[in-house]
Simulated assay, not measured.
Amino acid sequence: MDKPIDHKTWILVADGEKALFLENLGDSDLPNFAIRRVEEHENPPDREQGANKPGRLHDGGGNHRSAVEDTDWHQLEKERFAAEIADLLYKMAHRGQFEKIVIVAPPRILGEMRQHFHKEVQARIVGEIDKDLTNHPLDQIEKLLAA
Rank of each mutant, 00 (worst) to 15 (best):
Q49Y: 08
F81R: 06
A67F: 15
K8Q: 09
A51I: 14
V102Q: 08
V104C: 12
E142Y: 00
D132P: 06
K91G: 04
E112V: 13
I141P: 05
R95S: 14
Q122D: 03
G26C: 09
K18P: 05
E142K: 10
D6W: 12
R56N: 03
A82H: 09
I35G: 00
I109W: 01
E112H: 12
P107A: 13
S66H: 15
L89D: 05
D139K: 15
D46S: 11
R56L: 10
K131M: 06
E69A: 08
W10C: 13
H64I: 09
G60I: 02
L57M: 10
E120D: 13
A34P: 01
W73L: 14
D139V: 11
H64S: 04
E112P: 02
E39F: 06
R95P: 04
E69L: 08
F81A: 08
D130M: 13
S28V: 12
E120I: 12
E99K: 02
D139I: 10
L145M: 07
G60S: 04
F98M: 06
R80P: 01
K100Y: 10
G61H: 11
G16K: 06
I109S: 00
L144W: 14
I109A: 01
H94G: 13
R37D: 12
K3E: 11
K53Y: 13
K78H: 10
Q97C: 15
Q97T: 14
V104M: 13
T71P: 03
N32K: 09
K3V: 04
G127L: 10
P107K: 14
A19G: 07
E142T: 07
V68R: 04
K119N: 09
F81D: 00
A82I: 12
E17F: 07
A67C: 10
N63L: 03
G26Q: 09
K18A: 11
P31C: 03
H94E: 14
R56T: 09
R124V: 05
N135S: 15
K3L: 15
L145D: 03
E128L: 09
K91W: 03
M113V: 10
Q75G: 08
K78Y: 07
E23H: 06
N43L: 01
